[in-house]
C-alpha cells in the first residue's frame, strides 16, 4: 500500500466516484447476465461493463496516476480504444453464432434467414 495522503481531496473524490460508477455499472451488467431470461436479452447486459463500466475505471486510473506522477499518464487509453474496437467484433460474432444455431435447431421466434440462405456465409 502506498500512501495517498499527499493527494488532495480534489483528486481523491473524483477518482473514488469514477471507481464507484464504473464498478457499479459492471456489476449491474453481470446481474443482468444472470437474471435475464433469453440469450438475446443477455447479449445486451455486458455492454454496460464494456462502455461506461470500463470508462469509469480507466478514467479513475488516468486521473490517479497522473496526479501521483505529476505528468499525464495516458496508457490506459490504449485499453479503452482496444476494448472499443474489439467489443463490437466479439458481440456481433456471438450474436451471429447464436442466430445460426437457433435457426439450425428451428427455435421459435427467430427471424428466418434471408433468401440467400445460410447465415454466416461470409467470413
Amino acid at each position: 500500500m502506498t500512501d495517498f495522503d499527499t493527494l488532495s481531496l480534489w483528486v481523491a473524490v473524483p477518482v473514488g466516484l469514477l471507481l464507484v460508477l464504473g464498478s457499479t455499472l459492471t456489476l449491474l451488467g453481470t446481474v443482468g447476465l444472470v437474471q435475464l431470461k433469453s440469450f438475446y436479452d443477455r447479449l445486451h447486459a455486458p455492454t454496460l461493463g464494456t462502455s461506461w463500466g470500463t470508462a469509469g475505471v480507466l478514467l479513475a486510473s488516468i486521473l490517479l496516476f497522473s496526479a501521483l506522477d505529476g505528468r499525464a499518464v495516458l496508457h490506459e487509453l490504449v485499453i479503452g480504444i482496444f476494448l472499443l474496437i474489439t467489443t463490437p467484433v466479439t458481440l456481433m460474432l456471438l450474436g451471429r453464432a447464436a442466430l445460426h444455431r437457433d435457426r439450425a435447431e428451428k427455435v421459435r421466434g427467430i427471424p428466418p434467414a434471408r433468401a440467400r440462405g445460410d447465415a454466416g456465409s461470409d467470413g
Partner: peptide, 9 residues
C-alpha cells in the same frame, strides 16, 4: 454495439 440496448446481429 457500443450503445447498450441495441445489438447488431
Amino acid at each position: 454495439t457500443a450503445t447498450p440496448g441495441t445489438a447488431w446481429l
